[in-house]
Write a protein that binds this DNA or RNA. Structure first.
Length: 972
RNA sequence: GCGGAUGUGGCGGAAUUGGCAGACGCGCUAGACUCAGGAUCUAGUGAGGUAACACUCGUGGAGGUUCGAAUCCUCUCAUCCGCACCA
């Protein structure tokens, strides 16, 4: 590799060519360290990639998921997606598109604050330092961003509008009938609320807002000093930092994303996203349909009277105190409900528990509450629960059934209570068996193969499938689907039930008790004594933004009061219209800023609106959005939700923000081999090793004998069968594979190193050449070297590498292409264009390699072919392409040159080789014209010597000829 | 457990969607230029087989459909990634 070759000064400079800053260094060989910064400077100074305010003709909005600027800088995973969009953008510009291709930083959030605390630097300071480093790294890779549109979610003028959008959410209610968010001023107030006075009206209105306060149980993480969204808790531990999380009731801000669940699900259909991601979102939303049913609590004697009153009143909106409301997706199994279960946290527990059971119930509830989510998960295998002593009456058959509490029923889903049908639900079956509860089959599985019908009907096996209603009174014999419908209808008429829909999706817990986030633009009204009145006032729009106050100490203290509560009185207690308020001291979660940044890029400096409507209409939607699959659910769901609210309120023109989504695959570390040894150093085959009890430890299979994992050089390993073994002892299987890059493993590749050693164009090209964008693929330094070799050859194709300055190679001539050269050229143009259209970058690069291989062997390399090549290369390796383009005599950037067009007639050869098969096996090849018809091809095949020999003495039963493809003789 | 994805040379990956398996790159082997080579160029490189051809086998495995299967169908195995008591 030639690094820093010829940095010696020289006065050679192409005339009239602007990127020649001062003197040109002598550079006969390809030297990216010199070329790349020079072109980056050229693009910046000439504002080459400045985006027009409004697109004049065709537009392309290509968006990268903006990075979170961590202290460790860019990872090689970032440039993967960024290079892909950059290629698409550069290609689009050359095809006459107006291209919006912006970049920014998602800079608020927990990790920034944690890092800041650990280093003792204020978050804003460390964030800005990290952003500069990221910006430097991104610029060094030559992406064609319009840097004038750069933004960070932490910029005060930016989060002014984040706060503004929050106020929109606060000012919006969801009209179920219209399935639409509407201004809160249009909310109809029910007569009974109206009658209850202004406080009741305020309370009612506040509870209808999309941003509302709730006392629900939340995930409190003492380690981080904040509550977390369900999505941020994994296995009972915080996603960031893996601290334990406990459930506790706290008053928090919530966003009513569940109101949009149906639209979020339905609108997925029209999006150009992978089915996998769509399914992930659908599953996350988790829509289910079924019924809510009220079970009367009380004696059989009063049941008839209750039933009569329900018949008259209909199904009440809220469950009355004399009944227990459950949600089920299988109303058809109502006759098989032999007991009920309510969540330990259910408000009815106290009411239901009988004196005799009180002690047991209290003990169970305490035990459950003390358990962290983590412990609950670990124990989820075996069911636990306690009888409350109470009974409910099954509304369809009047039979009393016991009510239990158990933690396998979740308070946060449905109504927090279930009817248990052990014959047809695995969990209920397990529970019933454990506690000796009745099991009554009510669905005849018929000839279903996965269960034994006799056992099911006898209540000895659980069957969750569909079938025919059984032991279900008037419904006997009905198919499950029909039975569901009939029973739901009948319950509805009887006033004891109704059809219902539920979602796994929960409302979005939106407040955090941390410093480094957007303050909520809300004020709590105080009375004369300084106590909150419970009234909330939004900060007037013209007083936005609410900036973060300066705090000496912003560290979390493990208690749920937010750090902003420690702000000066000036900040904390504003006075408006003579009234004193206390600011809301919660901050928004990291997701807030990333929910709408794609809109701000369109009009980043607007201080009148979050985006100018005319510009928004012109640029939206995002045509291509590329990023990691880790955001498949959270970010993309939250952003879609906000977008829909903005859409309903008339601030944006599209129902969906991201038309096409592509998830780049993960880049793994270099392949490595791991062998296993006993502590004494004896090799053990990987086949005999299994993971130990602790993470990252190993034991001999079936024993607790500890085994050490040791690194093995790849040179000491060879392939044997399906696995890799030690060369010195082939009985020892080693584990050879690539692992996720991680600091602890020490296999992280730093883009700075790659750019220094090979150049940005090599890094870009390599990441695209590794394989399909969406695939997970291992890093390989040899692979980087390989593409660098290609760029070296491409350079020598055009440039005289033995000259003193950058001048054309003597082989580059003005004469026209030979027929063969012209075919190569046009085939390459066609293939590269086709592959680009399909975002198949790896194969496009392979085609360009073939082009270079061909012309390297040519003594004459016509200028027209070299010009076209520079243009084809430009999206992928823009620095080199610009340099070649300049050397070929052009005096300005190729960024807006027209993309080369192929001529179809030059993409076909004069004669093509066609395989001739006999019984499907290739026996010979013939040469025919590419447009030869079937008869000509068959004749040519029959004329072939080898084929004649093979056909001798056999009868040709059939001849299959695919013009342009093959000939096949079927013989006897 | 449920769901999704992926299995092709020593490695990363191609294959116009049912038509010459292994494009392109890495690695490896040999040669050339040569003080030298971790530079460059040239040739070769799936396995078996042959002096060289021929030929045989070959896309995780087993069946099937077809003149023809990496590609379609059935079953099966492995790896990776999600989700995980959602009634």
């Amino acid at each position: 590799m030639q690094h820093g070759v010829g940095i010696r000064q020289s006065s050679v400079c192409r005339t009239g060519f602007s990127p020649c800053f001062g003197t040109r260094p002598h550079m006969p060989r390809y030297n990216p360290a010199e070329i790349e910064p020079r072109w980056q400077q050229y693009w910046e100074q000439n504002k080459t990639f400045e985006t027009p305010r409004l697109p004049a003709g065709k537009k392309l909005y290509a968006l990268d998921m903006f990075p979170y600027p961590s202290g460790s800088g860019l990872h090689v995973g970032h440039p993967e997606g960024y290079t892909a969009t950059d290629i698409v953008c550069r290609y689009a510009r050359m095809n006459g598109y107006a291209v919006l291709h912006p970049m920014g930083f998602d800079a608020f959030g927990l990790p920034a604050e944690e890092a800041a605390i650990s280093k003792g630097i204020p978050p804003r300071e460390s964030t800005e330092k990290n952003i500069s480093n990221f910006r430097r790294q991104l610029k060094m890779l030559g992406f064609s961003y319009d840097w004038d549109r750069e933004l960070a979610t932490t910029d005060v003028p930016y989060f002014r509008w984040t706060q503004w959008i929050f106020l929109q959410l606060h000012d919006t209610w969801f009209d179920e009938e219209q399935q639409k968010g509407r201004p809160i001023s249009e909310l109809p107030i029910p007569a009974d609320v109206q009658a209850a006075g202004s406080d009741a009206i305020r309370t009612y209105i506040d509870q209808q807002r999309l941003a509302f306060q709730s006392d629900a149980l939340v995930n409190w993480c003492p380690g981080l000093g904040t509550v977390l969204a369900n999505e941020e808790v994994i296995d009972g531990l915080s996603e960031r930092g893996q601290h334990p999380v406990v459930r506790m009731p706290l008053r928090q801000w919530m966003l009513r994303i569940t109101a949009y669940a149906d639209r979020l699900e339905n609108d997925l259909e029209g999006l150009d996203w992978s089915e996998g991601i769509k399914k992930l979102q659908r599953d996350w939303i988790g829509r289910s349909t079924g019924a809510e049913v009220d079970f009367f609590i009380g004696g059989s004697a009063e049941f008839d009277a209750w039933r009569a009153s329900r018949q008259a009143s209909g199904f009440p909106k809220e469950a009355s105190a004399d009944c227990l409301r459950i949600y089920t997706t299988r109303p058809d199994t109502l006759y098989g409900a032999t007991y009920m279960v309510i969540a330990p946290e259910h408000p009815a527990v106290d009411r239901l528990t009988t004196p005799e059971q009180q002690a047991a119930v209290t003990a169970y509830r305490e035990a459950t509450a003390a358990k962290s989510d983590r412990e609950r998960q670990e124990e989820k295998k075996k069911k636990t629960g306690v009888f409350t002593g109470a009974f409910a009456i099954n509304p369809v058959n009047g039979r009393p059934i016991p009510i239990w509490i158990a933690d396998y029923v979740l308070i946060s889903y449905g109504t927090g209570a279930i009817m248990a049908v052990p014959a047809h639900d695995d969990r209920d079956f397990e529970f019933a068996q454990q506690f000796g509860l009745d099991i009554v089959a009510v669905v005849d599985p018929g000839d279903a193969t996965d269960v034994d019908r006799a056992l099911v009907l006898a209540g000895q096996q659980c069957s969750t499938g569909h079938g025919l209603a059984y032991q279900s009174g008037p419904y006997d014999g009905l198919k499950t689907a029909e039975c569901k419908e009939r029973i739901t209808g009948d319950l509805s008429e009887a006033g004891t039930g109704r059809a219902a829909v539920n979602y796994k999706l929960r409302d979005w817990l939106f407040s955090r008790q941390r410093f480094w986030g957007e303050p909520f633009p809300l004020l709590h009204e105080l009375d004369d004594d300084g106590n909150p009145t419970g009234m909330i006032r939004p900060v007037p729009e013209d007083q936005l933004p609410v900036d973060l106050p300066h705090l000496e100490d912003y560290k979390p203290h493990g208690r749920p009061e937010p750090p902003l509560a420690k702000a000066d009185d000036d900040w904390l207690y504003p006075v408006i219209d003579g009234k004193r308020y206390r600011r809301e001291t919660n901050t928004m979660p990291q997701w807030a800023g990333s929910c709408w940044y794609y809109l701000r890029y369109i009009d980043p400096n607007n201080d009148q609106a979050l985006v100018d409507p005319e510009l928004e209409r012109a640029w939206m939607p995002v045509d291509l959005y590329v990023g990691g699959a880790e955001h498949a659910v959270l970010h993309l769901l939250y952003a879609r939700f906000w977008h829909k609210v903005l859409y309903d309120r008339g601030h944006v023109s599209t129902a969906e923000p991201f038309q096409k989504l592509v998830n780049q695959g993960m880049i793994l570390g270099e392949m490595e081999a791991t062998g296993f040894q006993t502590p004494e150093g004896t090799w053990v085959s990987a086949r005999q090793v299994s993971p130990g009890p602790e993470r990252g430890t190993w034991v001999r299979q079936g024993t607790d004998e500890p085994i050490n994992a040791v690194h093995v050089e790849l040179g000491q390993v060879e392939k044997k069968g399906d696995s890799f073994v030690l060369k010195e002892d082939p009985a020892i299987v080693v584990d050879a594979r690539s692992h996720k890059m991680s600091k602890s493993r020490g296999n992280v590749v730093n883009p700075d190193d790659i750019v220094r050693d090979y150049g940005a164009d090599s890094l870009r090209l390599y990441e695209m050449f590794m394989g399909p964008l969406e695939a997970t693929k291992p890093w390989s330094m040899d692979g980087v070297k390989g593409v660098r070799g290609f760029l070296d050859r491409a350079w020598r194709l055009v440039i005289d590498d033995r000259a003193e300055a950058i001048v054309l190679s003597d082989a580059v001539v003005d004469s026209p292409c030979s027929d063969e050269a012209r075919r190569t050229l046009h085939k390459t143009i066609k293939a590269v264009t086709h592959d680009l259209d399909g975002m198949s970058f790896n194969t496009a690069i392979a085609r360009m390699m073939e082009f270079v291989n061909f012309f390297t062997k040519e003594a004459e390399r016509p200028r027209e072919a070299m010009n076209a090549f520079a243009l084809l290369l430009a999206p992928f390796a823009p620095h080199m392409a610009e340099e070649l383009w300049a050397a070929l005599g052009h005096d300005s950037t190729l960024a807006y040159e027209a993309w080369p067009v192929h001529d179809e007639q030059w993409t076909v050869d004069a004669a093509i080789e066609i395989p001739v098969q006999i019984l499907g096996k290739m026996r010979s090849k013939i040469r025919v014209a590419p447009d030869a018809d079937a008869a000509t091809m068959e004749a040519a095949a029959r004329a072939d010597e080898k084929i004649q020999g093979q056909l001798e003495g056999k009868t040709v039963v059939k001849v299959i000829v695919v013009p342009g493809r093959m000939v096949n003789f079927v013989v006897k």
